[in-house]
Nucleic acid binder design. Sequence first.
DNA 1: AAATTATGTGTAACCGATTACGCATAATGG
DNA 2: CCATTATGCGTAATCGGTTACACATAATTT
Lengths: 328, 328
Amino acid sequence: MATIRDVSKLAGVSVATVSRVLNRSGYVHEETERKVLRAIKELSYTPNFVARSLSNKKTSTIGLMVPDITNPFFPELARAVEDVMQLYGYTTILGNSDESVEKEKQYVEVLKQRYIDGVILASTALTADEVHKFGVPVVVLDRALTSDTIPMVTSKNREGAREATRFLLAQGCRKIAHLRGPAQLLNADERCQGYLDIVEQTDWFHPGLVVAGNYEMKQATDATLALLKKYPDIDGIFAGNDMMAIGALRAAQILGISIPDKLAIVGYDGITMGEVVYPELTTMAQPIYDMGALAARMLIKMIEKQPLDTLYYELDVQLIERGTTRKV
Amino acid sequence: MATIRDVSKLAGVSVATVSRVLNRSGYVHEETERKVLRAIKELSYTPNFVARSLSNKKTSTIGLMVPDITNPFFPELARAVEDVMQLYGYTTILGNSDESVEKEKQYVEVLKQRYIDGVILASTALTADEVHKFGVPVVVLDRALTSDTIPMVTSKNREGAREATRFLLAQGCRKIAHLRGPAQLLNADERCQGYLDIVEQTDWFHPGLVVAGNYEMKQATDATLALLKKYPDIDGIFAGNDMMAIGALRAAQILGISIPDKLAIVGYDGITMGEVVYPELTTMAQPIYDMGALAARMLIKMIEKQPLDTLYYELDVQLIERGTTRKV
DNA sequence: AAATTATGTGTAACCGATTACGCATAATGG
DNA sequence: CCATTATGCGTAATCGGTTACACATAATTT
């Protein structure tokens, strides 16, 4: 591999000059530039990023931390982040935290040693304080922290949940249950709250209609089986995420309950898997790709010290009507 | 951030000595080591990887190139690679190639500038020659190249396809169709060939039973719809991958054909999505995680210049019987 | 006891870029 | 016409590590 010194020798100039044409910094005579460019081409020289990073303290590399890339919500997010990063000349390091605070911190330490320029934390379990300590630009995705200084991107969980529940009501459902997500997650709380906003005052509502879950399918299937056994007159389910909605669908199929005639189901997320089940899942879709892309753009702005006009984005969600609810 | 010079000053030794205790290279007096360690702790010093990489020409970073992380086959692979890499102190950069040879080459160039230590190419479209030109250690995953010098990890496609087809036959199927993958992919050819090995000599076989596909669900649904219209007596389908199998399942559901009674379906891959559809998909499962982990370990060996005992691994596949075929 | 070998440590070059600083010369202004 | 300012380029320090080499002393061999 040729170095900048090889180029400078061949072109008969100093390394400073070569660096100047490389970075379009400072004055370079047109003639000289041509010579340098010719030398670069001849040696098929390409600058060494590591060396550059050392003096720059900038690696054009960011870290993307997800709980588990295997969880169907995250590949699309990761794709968006990677697309945008690549567009701006950044490279993306992927890390799986398995929801463990320790693993997450450890990973960020590793990344900092490597002079990473910034980090996107998707669904982090960290507190705002811990994030502050990182000392590198951070954008938090999907999960909100209680902080007004850390940039975040989420969707309108509460409002989306309300809308989803209202939709079930409008479909003629008379008893709607909610499969909620893990207790420690803010977005699960918000979605549950949105559901409650709509149904709490109805005459049929009682707390037994809210059942705990962990955002996973298997558990949702079991929970729904139990739920439907206990309250056979439930005719609508709003699940805190799509995987749980699919779990509920599975339970209905096991029990031979016809979907959507006897039971309507609405999920939340809009993951691709919803289109794979049959009937296809009606869901309150988050703009997953947009959320990832937005977070990526925000992070780049922060890295390049441009001002952010908004610190906290709550993107709109959209109901996608499919087979698990009746057409009106 | 403290540097090695800060540490050396505080400990009253030279930077060389600090480096020696850091890397356990060369002789260091026990007493001196203690002093250095104390200084390191006091300054909470952590070595700068970028600087280290510059003199080492080793970044402990590898690239993982997938066609599209959004394609459900790859997250599990990525997870395996990342797990193993992390275990060995490596960091994984993720890249999506969208099956484009150009994008792939370009990405590798970017990675090389960054002194990446090696690359795992999952489902690459590159030729062996092009891969050779990279000049960094490469392991190819999932797709075989015609080369006996590039390390590869795949599964026993042909044998697996045979077994899957035999299984359908044993289930009592009398007319089995095959949804094959893209023409340019070797693994699609091999799976198709495995199917043919079993059925070509039967009295019912004719070439119309092999239909072209692109490994995607939507297309498979359409193709199956047409296929079943044309040949209503088909009672078994072996699909080249799980997504297409799910597409076929969808077609059957649309036509109201009962699965598995009237039509049995077997896929190939063993992706998680197969457990999400109903009935759950019977599939010839590749050990996806193991394949990723193995490729990662091979790459690390290559990077660390240890000999590989085998260049070409063809892992065993395993039939997972689920709802789209009858229990025997 | 002399010759080796093992142990312990420091100096300074090096990895390959960026850039502050200095010094020319050319162009422009008053 | 002299003072500025703009243009053009090179020298050498710097980023933060690693390591070849040199040198000293201690432990073993012969």
